[in-house]
Structures are given as structure tokens and as C-alpha cells.
Design a protein around this nucleic acid. Structure first.
Lengths: 122, 122
DNA sequence: GAAAGTACTTTCCAAAAGGAAACTACCCTA
DNA sequence: TAGGGTAGTTTCCTTTTGGAAAGTACTTTC
């Protein structure tokens, strides 16, 4: 009995799956989308600003996630030579290409909430 | 010295952030997007089919993730009364509303790969 | 009646993720 | 010179995640 050739294991599909894995590995963790979302809304924020803006995050996580995002060129880090030195974090032009994705994420989440409340068991 | 009112903590923004958290918590884990992506491509697959299709997943994870997705009405599970009983997993109509999101995810990942190869350091 | 296929579940373990609190280091103001 | 603000880092700990392997249960085929 031959094993049925289930679906599409064509290159396009494998590339697609790989692409999804790539995106998710770059944006993994509990806080990446929050940080990016915050920086997309209010460009140029300091470390303490982000710590205050993003509800629940601690300095360790914020620091680590910002480093990840910077490494992937999604956010920029600029040390200003103000007197108590400050650092400006901002979304890069490249990071801004995530806007459509983040919008889809938000849109789906909003519709999800509505579907829970507005229906009798989906 | 008054604390600067950093950005938009208007209800819309909080709702948006909450929505992103909701979506991500439903789609958390290493395999959800793979499973959904696979079921969107080839509707109606058995447990063993999925196990073979999704490279690297084990039966424990597949089982657990399918239960999660079923609980959230994103996939359906139908026990067929064939002789060695088989189970058909399929994406629900509701689960299909994730297609645009998954497409964005894939699209961004593909462009990401291109940006790595095609540029001199972004 | 043994093997193999369906669909899982259970156990046991290792690694990764994440959080609280304390600590560094530097500067300014009072 | 003590307190408070900047921007983090370090330590220690718990929780979560995920994987390998074996087990369950039932059926059909050889």
C-alpha cells in the first residue's frame, strides 16, 4: 500500500513555511510586538519611557529584547550627548515594514474579542 | 518636574495592545502556525498525515496543539466511523480568517531573507 | 497470532524563558 | 553629600516549553 502523497510539498510551500518560521523566530518572546507597537506609535523613546509605557515589563527583559531588535535592524539605539546621558530608541525604516503585520495581528485580536462576546459559541 | 506624558495611552492604543496580546496568546508556541498553515493548504488531514507533513513535530506536541486550536474553534476534529477509526482535522471557517495574518507573516519572512542576501548590511 | 496501522497519552527530563530584586555607574540638584 | 534620575547588568529562582521514548487501545491484514 503506497503512502499517499498528502499535500503540496512543492518548493513554494516549503519556502512559505520556512518564511513563517523565520519571522516568528525574529519576533519571538512575550514582548517584541509590544515594544515594536509602542515605538511605531510614539517614535523616539528613552529606556525609562519604554519601561513606563509597556505595562508589566522589567528592565532585564526590556534591555534584552531591545538588543535583539537592534541586532535585527528593527529598532535603532542612539546615545545622545545630553548631560545625564540619554538614549533614544526608535523604529527603523526597516522595522516599519512590520506595520502591516502588526495591524493584522491587532485587527484579528479585536475581531476575536467581538466574536467571543457577540456569539452563542461561534 | 512633571513627568512627560509620553505617548498615546488613549483607549484605542490600549485596546490595540491588548488585541495583539490576545492574538499572540492564542497562537503561541512553536507549532501553531505550522499546523494552521498546513491545514489551510491541504484541508482534511489525519493525525498521522500531520505528523508526517510537519517536519520535526512529535505526537505529544501535535496532540496538544491541536487541542488548543480546537478549543479556540480554529480547527475542527471529526471522528470518522471508518474501520480503523480515523480522525479528520480541518481548518474551520473561523480559522480561515487567519489567512491574511499568515500571509503577512510569510510575506515578511520572504522579504527578510531577500534583504539579508541582497544588501550590504541593511 | 504477530505485525502494522490508526490515534493518541503518559512519563521523564532538559532547556529556554521570564521575573524580582539588587547592584553598577554616572550625573545633576538641593 | 544625600537623593533622585539616567541606563542598564547581574544573580537567583520559578515557570513554561518542548522533545524522546514508551505505553495504551483497538483493528485489519498477513
Amino acid at each position: 500500500m503506497k503512502k499517499k502523497a498528502v499535500i503540496n510539498d512543492s518548493p513554494v510551500c516549503q519556502v512559505r513555511m520556512q518564511a513563517i518560521s523565520d519571522t516568528m523566530s525574529i519576533l519571538s518572546g512575550k514582548w517584541k510586538f509590544h515594544i515594536l507597537g509602542t515605538l511605531i506609535e510614539g517614535s523616539k523613546l528613552g529606556f525609562m519611557d519604554l519601561l513606563r509605557e509597556i505595562d508589566g515589563i522589567g528592565s532585564k527583559m526590556l534591555s534584552k529584547e531591545l538588543q535583539d531588535l537592534e541586532m535585527n535592524h528593527l529598532v535603532s539605539r542612539t546615545v545622545m550627548d545630553t548631560k545625564p546621558i540619554t538614549v533614544e530608541y526608535a523604529i527603523t525604516e526597516y522595522g516599519a515594514t512590520l506595520s502591516p503585520l502588526i495591524n493584522e495581528l491587532a485587527k484579528w485580536g479585536i475581531e476575536y474579542r467581538q466574536s467571543i462576546h457577540g456569539s452563542k459559541g461561534v
